[in-house]
């Protein structure tokens, strides 16, 4: 009887465990990143050359291409970004500030966007660079988008001599 009982119970005891596979999870979140910087720091000075002879107009504006836009951008699939520019403050009457961005240069990688045509800045945002995806430009004043500033006389009779200070605001934003 004991022999029979053992024979009946043993298979049941033998089959009480068993797992062919086991799982764990892994994951990482890569966040959306939008960073923009102008390098090097400091302001830009532009001026017109005074005429040397009565009756002549102002000389052409000086230009400045010392500034670079550095960006880091990480976007969700299908998202693109743009860099807009606008004036903050009051620009001198009769004068327009012109800015253009050269194609991206230096180190970095990715989809860093394409500059559009030169802009005459106003107090409203205008697109300077578009089509930015995931990418980075590298840092400092040899990487990214080189900016060129100059002044343009729009309305001669509004010109008043003096020193004027205003800011240009660049924004990296989703399209």
């Amino acid at each position: 009887m004991r022999f029979l009982l053992f024979i009946l119970l043993y298979p049941a005891m033998s089959l009480t465990y068993g797992q062919m596979s086991s799982s764990v999870s892994a994951g990482v979140t890569l966040p959306s990143v939008a960073l923009l910087d102008i390098e090097p720091s400091g302001s830009v000075s532009l001026n017109f050359t005074s005429p040397s002879e009565a009756g002549n107009i102002l000389g052409s504006s000086s230009t400045n291409n010392s500034k670079w836009i550095n960006i880091t951008s990480a976007v969700a699939s299908g998202v693109t970004r743009k860099i807009t520019a606008r004036i903050s403050g009051t620009a001198p009457a009769g004068v327009r500030l012109r800015v253009s961005a050269a194609s991206v240069a230096g180190s970095g990688a990715g989809t860093r966007g394409t500059p559009g045509s030169a802009l005459f800045l106003t107090t409203s945002d205008q697109i300077l660079i578009n089509g930015i995806g995931g990418g980075y430009t590298g840092t400092g004043n040899t990487n990214g988008f080189n900016l060129t500033y100059s002044l343009d006389i729009q309305t001669y009779n509004l010109l008043k001599s003096g020193a004027y200070t205003f800011s240009v605001v660049y924004t990296l934003a989703d399209n």
């Binding site: 298979p11 033998s14 089959l15 465990y17 068993g18 797992q19 062919m20 596979s21 086991s22 799982s23 764990v24 999870s25 892994a26 994951g27 990482v28 979140t29 890569l30 966040p31 990143v33 960073l35 923009l36 910087d37 390098e39 550095n70 960006i71 880091t72 970095g108 990688a109 980075y136 430009t137 590298g138 840092t139 400092g140 990487n143 990214g144």
Partner: peptide
Amino acid sequence: ALRAQSISASGSWTPSVTAITEAGNN
């Protein structure tokens, strides 16, 4: 021979990336 094999795994992994602090960097 009928006894089943068994495997058990425990311990998941969800790391975080270090935030980028300067524009232009990866």
